[in-house]
Design a binder for these strands. Structure first.
Lengths: 355, 355
DNA sequence: ACAAATATTGCATTCGAATGCAATTACAAT
DNA sequence: ATTGTAATTGCATTCGAATGCAATATTTGT
């Protein structure tokens, strides 16, 4: 039952066939069609790259589009095409790099995709978040947070492409982009041992963080291999204050003796640790104690700290995550894929390593 | 022409009236209706709070929903209700506080709104971004970035509620949430002058930043009022390196003389400035030179810096922005509104002010 | 038990753009 | 001019959920 001659009840009765531009109400493709004296399909085709439209038609439609200020309704388009052109990005509150978000946003929008941001506050919220995501009919999900198995299942069954950024699940066949945490930590330990450090303290991240566990065991395993079993592990929560607190715990746990080197699971705790070593213990870094971090956060390079750390190629990683998602959106049949990057040792001055 | 008996061509011909749960394809409200032996409207109503549904009906539908794994399609809903339940957030790349994004995301999602994130790379991109936003049919826009007048116009004409966060346009009637930059800067200057500082250097932000201009003129005006016209202004770009660079420019501009106090337009530059004072000039902060910042960034409280700064109530500000947007989504007639907060002096030790 | 009032339910339509198919037009070749 | 072929255009339908209205079913009052 077409509706070419009368779209809907606007404020004015439509007496004329081609009305003057109406100032109110959102302009639809029918409005444009009517104004330009063509069919709605023609208008639609003018917005589809590679569609069959004559030059004359395109000009005519575009003129009307211009004059009426028409913009295609992405929601209506999404309904019929089954593509929302949106990608959900999930982050955990703790410890995310601001530049990652900016990179993701830029990279996605460069590919014509919009970014829906979700921030988990605690694991319980993941249920609700995944529910929201599912209802939004996003084309894909980039998760820079841990998701419960059940939620991963849900997304997989709904055939929504999913990629984990900076964490991977060994026993679930899911795409991920990560950095080899163990290799990085081994590099750090090697550098410290080569430089002659002999006693070590380790400040791990939260116990439920997979990345922290990988980093920590990477360090302890390598230390064990090299015959340095004199190492104590304490836990922080990735933030500045916990770096200092953990250092004090560490020293207490070692019978009030400061280790020669402290290995921190991330840069921010390393910074907190350095400040505590200086202020609370009056020590010099690196003369009295060495401190190393992990991440390559921008603050790591501030000259008050100048950390020895592992620089993760976050730019390359975000690009990889985006391309994995995009590939799977365009080609739903693709199997999961894991891309693992290697971090590089950043030779700062918070430990006296050999340059 | 209803379609109760046969929704669409699935893989199998629909012989039975109530089919077993089909494993493939997204489940629609029609599928649920058919499976439960009720009408599609009934299913729809079960998801609308306060709709007229009997207990028996609700149970029956929910059972089917559960068994089929149905989730309402937000896109289809958005088309008919004319509400996408999405709010666009625009940030500029430079200088945004990570926690602001997290707060926005949480606050919006607590109100059932999803957050579409857009990151501007340069002002030219604003055109494109606003275009995208418009097409997405978001219910509102929170801008933590400068937008060209023309784009503001576009959004206003499209009747999309818009609120600026942490910046305001004096001569355009637009909602905004901001912090009184001038008052904050005056507070800082007063504190410095009261403490006896007599010569000043000012490190401003980028020339096109409105906030930077407000902060800078706030400082210079107050200094002038108090009779200290001995102040030089140099420009940075809000990042760490530019703090150090600007300090050197400042000293050069004053005939190689270090001022007694340096007033920086944000915390990160203040930190860069402190590091440069210590490393490049071998000076002590605050004994040889005082440095003050602005923002209350988390790093400002790190003990290596412990800045005297103005703490902006960002949490309250984001909440305010969200509530302004929500009010205007629910009640499109509301006039624009400006909420101005006041920052508080954070009495760190980067300047010897009176506690 | 019966009429009136109220609560549920279903029908049919709507939102705005995309698209398969058929109809029409433009263009080329004879 | 005529027929054939290719390029355009329009028609009618579709996506999935919400909703006004009418048709039932239930409850209430008497």
């Amino acid at each position: 039952m077409g509706r070419t001659s009368s779209n809907k009840a606007r404020t004015k009765p439509d007496v004329a066939i081609a009305a003057v531009p109406e100032p109110n109400g959102p302009v639809t493709s029918y409005d444009v069609a009517r104004y330009a004296g063509v069919s709605q399909s023609a208008v639609s085709r003018c917005f589809k790259p590679g569609a069959s439209v004559s030059k004359k038609m395109r000009e005519r439609v575009m003129k009307a589009v211009e004059e009426l200020g028409y913009r295609p309704n992405a929601i209506a388009r999404g309904l019929i095409t089954q593509r929302s052109n949106m990608v959900a990005v999930i982050i955990a509150n703790l410890r995310f790099y601001p530049e990652v978000l900016v990179n993701l946003s830029r990279g996605l929008s460069r590919r014509g995709l919009n970014m829906l941001l979700f921030s988990l506050d605690d694991e319980g919220a993941a249920n609700n978040t995944v529910e929201q995501i599912w209802q939004s009919r996003v084309d894909g999900v980039i998760a820079a947070a841990n998701l419960p198995r059940e939620q991963i299942e849900t997304l997989t069954r709904a055939k929504i492409p999913l990629v984990f950024l900076n964490r991977n699940y060994r026993d679930v066949p899911i795409s991920s982009v990560s950095c080899d945490q163990v290799a990085g930590e081994r590099t750090l330990v090697n550098a410290l041992v080569n430089a002659g450090y002999k006693s070590f303290g380790i400040i791990a991240g939260p116990q439920n963080s997979i990345v922290s566990r990988q980093r920590t065991t990477g360090a302890t395993d390598r230390l064990d291999e090299l015959g340095f079993s004199d190492h104590v592990v304490v836990f922080g929560n990735y933030d500045y204050d916990s770096g200092g607190t953990a250092l004090r715990e560490l020293v207490a746990a070692r019978g009030n003796k400061m280790p020669e080197a402290v290995i921190c699971a991330n840069d921010v705790m390393a910074i907190g640790c350095i400040d505590a070593a200086r202020d609370h213990y009056g020590l010099d870094v690196p003369d009295d104690v060495a401190v190393v971090g992990y991440d390559g956060a921008s603050q790591a390079y501030w000259s008050s700290y100048d950390l020895v750390t592992i620089q993760q190629p976050m730019q390359a990683m975000t690009e990889a995550a985006i391309s994995i998602i995009q590939d799977r959106i365009e080609n739903p049949g693709l199997p999961p894929e894991r891309r693992v990057f290697l971090g590089s040792l950043s030779r700062g001055s918070s430990a006296k390593i050999i340059k």
